[in-house]
């Protein structure tokens, strides 16, 4: 029997799956495969009989894997979630990064650590990327609303751009609100009145 650890990564997004697989392969000589279908997930995982299952914590389908922790039949291998408290800091790091792992009982901690380290690093990166993307998107949307509000003020009050923005900012400060909120209220109101 091969001594290689077999790892199953549950990840519907193909790009992400490839990145995770790459980083795991770089971390050690593992036998890595990916399941992208949520349908029949518990069945697929148990048929591959892996040593470790890695799954995104933000996925609702994670609950499906909890079934694996119920050793209900004589053929089922007992599976425990990685969070077995033997290494609290690693557990915490994993949960904060948004990855959880299910490992077969009895697997030694020093064999899991490199896998978890690689997965945690990768998940942290995903998290950062997602945060950056959201921040950028929000900034763009806010700018769009403020531009529209400025345009409305320029037309209605005959102001130039700078004066329109100053008026928005002053109103926001007076009311203790954000500029974008005032702009949004103005755009909504203008939409209703037109």
């Amino acid at each position: 029997m091969s001594n290689k650890l077999s790892i199953v990564v549950v990840e519907p997004d193909r790009e992400r799956a490839i990145l995770i697989v790459d980083s795991l392969r770089a971390a050690g000589d593992f036998d890595v495969s990916v399941i992208s279908e949520v349908t029949g997930l518990a069945r697929h995982v148990s048929s591959r009989d892996p040593d470790v299952v890695l799954v995104d914590l933000t996925s609702p389908s994670r609950d499906i894997l909890e079934e694996l922790t119920l050793a209900s039949g004589p053929l089922d291998r007992p599976v425990a979630m990685f969070v077995d408290r033997s290494d609290d800091s690693l557990t915490k790091a994993a949960i904060e990064a948004g990855v959880s792992a299910y490992v077969v009982d009895g697997l030694r901690a020093d064999r899991i650590k490199p896998i978890m380290d690689a997965a945690i690093a990768r998940f942290h990166m995903f998290h950062r990327m997602r945060l950056e993307l959201e921040t950028t998107k929000r900034a763009l949307e806010e700018r769009k609303v403020i531009d529209r509000a400025k345009g409305l003020l320029m037309k209605a009050r005959g102001l130039d751009e700078e004066a329109a923005y100053a008026l928005l900012r002053k109103t926001a400060m007076d009311q203790g609100r954000k500029v974008v909120d005032v702009a949004e209220a103005l755009v909504t109101a203008a939409g209703l009145l037109s």
Binding site: T58, P60, R62, D63, I95
Partner: peptide, 14 residues
Amino acid sequence: PSWSTLRDMLAIGA
């Protein structure tokens, strides 16, 4: 996102 995640968040003190 899931019951297991909620449980883990509570257990580790998040």
